[in-house]
């Protein structure tokens, strides 16, 4: 049997820092190295690097050996910035249409991608926004990426953040030009995205689902009214909802898209659970039954209710017996 144990990963380079250096903490932003000291923790002597966040003033102590593992890196150099601008000018970046893959990629880029990773997230989501508006979470991610990018760019170029942001946007939104409108065809053919439809643009999981909910709720209410007090009604709901669920919902999972799509073309899937009770057919000429009232029946009135009401009880101390 072959040995399946993975090869040990290459050791990460140790970041040699000194007090006063400026570094970037992934997903947090710029930090200043304020102290490097040896502390004893649980009997172990470790060299800790104290980082102070420029924006919030927060302090974090990281063991020196774990700086690289945590993704702490030096600020990008002007050469890196040039490469980033070249990348931003190119029209090569296309975000995946599969929102799960896109979210995974973007999260990874934000944490370990460096300045070019931030640029990829910003560019990818910006291009995607030319196809359709971004869902709220991605809009937030776009804003976070832009914020981290601008603050690092300002530090790298030694300029104000306003200038750094405008330097970015001069590339993304060239002066005198409107943003182009993208078509879905431009995004297809990337990493198997050609199998995906319009329903995988990422809205289904968030905004799209919200729009469809009221209709489903109405359907559920209607069905529950028809069935009255039938105890089986709640059990039937999921099966019925699954059968009536539009194609968009079924296609949410990328890995099973094709299989589910194929199943839709074939015979309808057999419903699970107990079949619904047959409704009695109405007799011709007979008046339809009054709909059964729901809820607890009203309390029967006591027999004494018809008797004349008792004289109201006098308040206060009873008179003394003579």
């Amino acid at each position: 049997m072959p040995d399946v144990t993975p090869a040990p990963a290459a050791p990460l380079p140790v970041l040699n820092l000194s007090v006063g250096d400026r570094v970037v903490y992934p997903n947090q932003g710029l930090c200043n190295v304020t102290e490097i000291a040896t502390d004893e923790i649980a009997g172990q002597k470790l060299v800790f690097v104290t980082l102070r966040f420029v924006e919030t003033g927060g302090i974090v102590k990281v063991p020196k050996d774990k700086l690289a593992k945590n993704g702490v890196r030096r600020i990008a150099t002007p050469d890196d910035v040039k490469k980033v601008f070249e990348f931003l000018r190119s029209d090569s970046e296309r975000a995946s249409l599969d929102w799960k893959k896109r979210a995974r990629d973007n999260t990874e880029r934000l944490s370990i991608g460096g300045l070019i990773g931030l640029a990829e997230v910003v560019k990818g989501l910006q291009v995607l926004s030319e196809l359709r508006p971004l869902p709220p979470k991605e809009r937030e991610q776009y804003n976070d990426a832009r914020h981290l990018f601008v603050s690092e760019l300002a530090a790298a170029l030694n300029c104000t953040e306003a200038d750094a942001e405008d330097a970015l946007d001069v590339v993304l939104f060239p002066p005198g030009k409107e943003r182009p409108k993208r078509s879905i065809e431009e995004f297809q053919g990337l990493m198997g995205d050609d199998l995906l439809g319009d329903d995988l643009l990422g809205l289904d999981g968030e905004a799209g689902a919200g729009e469809e909910e009221p209709e489903e709720k109405e359907k559920d209410e209607e069905s529950s009214e028809e069935e009255g007090d039938d105890e089986d009604a709640p059990k039937k709901k999921p099966a019925k909802a699954a059968a009536e669920k539009p194609k968009k919902k079924l296609d949410l999972d990328t890995e099973t898209t094709v299989a589910q799509g194929a199943a839709l073309d074939g015979p309808a899937p057999k419903k699970r659970g107990r079949p619904p009770k047959p409704k009695p057919e109405p007799v011709a000429g007979a008046e339809p039954e009054a709909p059964k009232k729901r809820g607890r029946p009203p309390k029967a009135k006591p027999a004494e209710a018809e008797a004349p009401p008792a004289a109201p009880k006098k308040r206060g101390r009873p008179p003394k017996a003579k």
């Binding site: 910035v81 601008f85 931003l88 170029l157 300029c159 104000t160 953040e161 306003a162 200038d163 942001e165 405008d166 330097a167 970015l168 946007d169 001069v170 590339v171 002066p175």
Partner: peptide
């Protein structure tokens, strides 16, 4: 700027 010339209607100190 580093990436080109930005038309300027105004400017702000960020935050």
């Amino acid at each position: 700027l580093a990436s080109g010339e930005a038309p300027t209607a105004g400017i702000t100190r960020y935050k």
